[in-house]
Amino acid sequence: MTNNEGASRSGLPWEDRDYRAIIAAIGEGANDIDEVARYTGRTTSSIMSKWRRLLPIEQRTAPRDRVIPLLRGHLEDPNYDWQLATITDPPPPPIVRPPAKTGLPGLELEDLEDIGFAVGLSAVVMPDVLRERLGVEIVTRNLQHRIRDRRVEQLLTSPGSVISVAAAEAEANTWISRVYASVSRYAGALRPYRSEWDYGHSVREYDEPWTTAHALGNGAVEVVEPVDEYRSAIGDEPQF
C-alpha cells in the first residue's frame, strides 16, 4: 500500500484502536510516517494530525520534525493520559471589545452635524481649543460639506431676502472656514453645493442659480423662485 492511496481506514472515524496503533508505532521507535501509514491504513496527514492531538495543547503547534520526539517523551511517562489529551481543546480566544468612544468622537454622525451647525450660528463664545477639537472631528468624519450646505439652505430659504445659489455658496464657504479653521486647514476644497433634498434622494448638483439675487441690504431673504416651486418644476425625482 502506498502513501495516501488505498488507505483501508481512510475517512473512517478514529477509534481507540487507531490511536493505540499510532502510539504503538511511536513506542516501537518509528520515525517514518509513511511506514506508519502503511501499517495503520491511515493517511500521513491524518496520522500527523492525531499525533499532534495526543500532545499537550501548548505543544500542538510544534514544528513537524519535533512532533514525534515530543510525543515519545510524553508516552514514556506512565502517568501521561493520552486519552484525556485527545478530548482536550484549547480555550476559546478572548473576546476583545474596543473601548467605547466618549466625548466628541462618541457622538452619532447626525448629532455631530447638528452641533457643528448650531455652534457655527451661535453667538456664544466657545473656547478656541474646544472649537478646534469640534472642527477636527467634523473634518475627520467629512461633515464639513453637509454643514456648509445647511448654511446655504438657510440663506436661500430665509424669508424676506433673495440670493443666488452661487452667492449663498460663497458666503457659506467663508462662514464655515471662519468658524472652523480646521476646515480650511485640513479639508481642502469644498465640493459644489447640494441641497438637503439631494442628500435624501440622489447625488444631484445644481449648475445654475435657481433664485434671483436682489440685495435688500438688511440681511432678510425673499426667495423669488421658492424652493418648493423649483422642486415642483423638476418633479419628485431628480432629472439628469
Rank of each mutant, 00 (worst) to 15 (best):
H201I: 12
E196A: 13
H214Y: 10
T211A: 03
Y193E: 09
H201G: 03
V203Y: 07
D207S: 11
A215N: 13
Y180I: 10
A187N: 09
Y199I: 00
R178A: 15
A187M: 05
S177K: 15
E225P: 00
S202F: 07
A189Q: 11
G219A: 02
A215G: 06
T212M: 12
V224H: 06
Y193I: 00
E222P: 04
R204M: 15
I176F: 06
A189C: 06
E208K: 12
V179G: 00
P209Q: 01
G219M: 12
E225K: 09
E205M: 07
D207W: 08
T212G: 03
V223W: 05
E222D: 09
W210D: 15
G200D: 14
A215W: 08
R178Y: 08
S182A: 14
D207P: 03
I176D: 03
S184G: 15
P209C: 14
N218K: 02
L216F: 08
R194G: 01
S202N: 09
L190A: 07
T211E: 01
G200A: 14
E208H: 13
A189H: 05
H201S: 13
D198G: 13
E196P: 04
D207I: 03
A181K: 11
G188P: 00
R194I: 00
A220Y: 11
P192W: 07
V224M: 05
L216Q: 10
R204T: 15
I176K: 05
D207F: 01
D198M: 14
Y193V: 00
V221C: 04
D198P: 11
E196K: 12
V183L: 03
R185D: 12
R185H: 01
G200N: 10
G219F: 01
G217V: 00
V224R: 07
R194H: 08
E208P: 07
W210H: 14
R191E: 11
V224I: 13
A213C: 06
P209Y: 04
L190H: 05
E222M: 06
A189D: 08
H214M: 14
L216P: 08
T211G: 01
G188V: 02
R185F: 02
G200E: 12
L190Q: 04
N218L: 08
V179A: 02
S195K: 03
E205P: 01
V203D: 15
Y193S: 05
A220F: 04
A220I: 09
L190P: 01
Y193A: 01
V183K: 02
V179M: 00
A181P: 01
R191A: 09
A213K: 06
S202I: 04
H201C: 04
N218H: 09
V223C: 03
R204K: 09
Y180H: 05
R204C: 11
N218M: 09
S184C: 13
R194Y: 02
Y186K: 09
V203M: 05
S202Q: 07
G200S: 12
E225N: 15
P226N: 12
